[in-house]
Amino acid sequence: MSVRIVVADDQELVRAGFSMILDAQPDFEVVAEAGNGTEAVEAVRTHRPDVVLLDIRMPGMDGIQAARVICAETGTRVIILTTFDLDEYVFEALRAGASGFLLKDVRRADLVHAVRVVAAGESLLAPSITSKLIARFTTETAQPRPAPSTERLAALTGREQETLKLISRGMANVEIAEAMVISEHTVKTHVSNVLTKLGLRDRIQAVIVAYETGLAVPGRSD
């Protein structure tokens, strides 16, 4: 079964280049292209793709606005395209529900790999990169919180909260298992429970929640 993709970028050559690379894969199908956020939203509503690539800066409705609409209305996974690896809007894009982001100068193999990873339900960013990125933007945008927000985290067990805190440090499952002295299978169960109970799509959103609730504090590892 093919992975259905929509590519949205206001630069025709960039859009066409990405589409050509992706369409060349035997298990990929680019079902539509879009030149702005409004067209991207309509394309997703019409074609219901598995993944949509959204340029973060487009005329009219930008990538962040489009991501909010797409993630709220559909199960389509969003990958944000950006020129800079720490674009000031990336954090907002991730909060909007995006599953990660790619630089526009991404290598062909990495682009293909990224789409496969996101289509499979995982987040695009490596855990260490996720932690650094979210910590930076949270430090710059969030107000200090004296204590974790118990209301948002009340649904989680103590072990699940501990798992969430370790996710926010950029740890992979095997590292979490070692830190908590449990099996990797148990870690996977905890991670799945965290995402389900908090209504999250992936680990990236879990990291954001950890910082927003005060469970994780930038610069602290306790």
Rank of each mutant, 00 (worst) to 15 (best):
A67N: 03
L200T: 01
L94I: 11
T82F: 08
S123C: 11
E73K: 10
V44C: 04
T83W: 12
V69G: 04
L22T: 08
L195P: 02
E42D: 15
D202Q: 05
L156M: 13
V118R: 00
L86H: 13
E92I: 10
V112Y: 05
A177R: 00
T139C: 10
F91T: 04
T74V: 13
P26F: 14
V187D: 01
G75S: 10
L125M: 12
L200S: 01
F137D: 00
L102P: 01
L166Y: 04
R107N: 11
L200E: 00
E151W: 11
K104M: 10
L156T: 07
A72M: 07
V207C: 05
E178D: 14
S2P: 13
V115K: 02
F84I: 15
Q65S: 07
L133H: 04
D55P: 10
V78H: 00
V187I: 11
L102M: 09
A34Y: 06
M171D: 05
T141G: 05
I56R: 03
G97V: 12
I182E: 05
Q205L: 06
F28E: 03
Q161Y: 11
L215F: 06
Q65K: 11
I64N: 02
A172C: 08
A172K: 05
I176G: 00
I79E: 00
M180Q: 08
A43G: 11
D23Q: 14
I80Y: 03
T76H: 02
V69Y: 07
F101Y: 09
I129V: 15
P59N: 09
S123I: 05
G97P: 03
D50I: 08
L153V: 09
A109Q: 10
D87A: 08
Y211C: 06
T76W: 02
V44K: 01
L215H: 03
V44I: 12
F101P: 00
T150R: 14
A119W: 00
N193G: 09
V69K: 06
G219E: 05
D55M: 11
L111P: 02
L153D: 01
D85K: 09
T82H: 04
E73G: 09
I182C: 10
E140I: 15
L198A: 07
R107D: 12
Y89M: 10
K197A: 01
S149K: 14
R107V: 14
L166S: 01
R48Q: 14
G219A: 10
R48W: 12
S221C: 12
I21L: 09
V6Q: 02
V52Y: 01
P218G: 04
A32G: 05
A93Y: 03
E92C: 07
N193T: 13
P26G: 12
A147S: 11
I134T: 03
V181D: 15
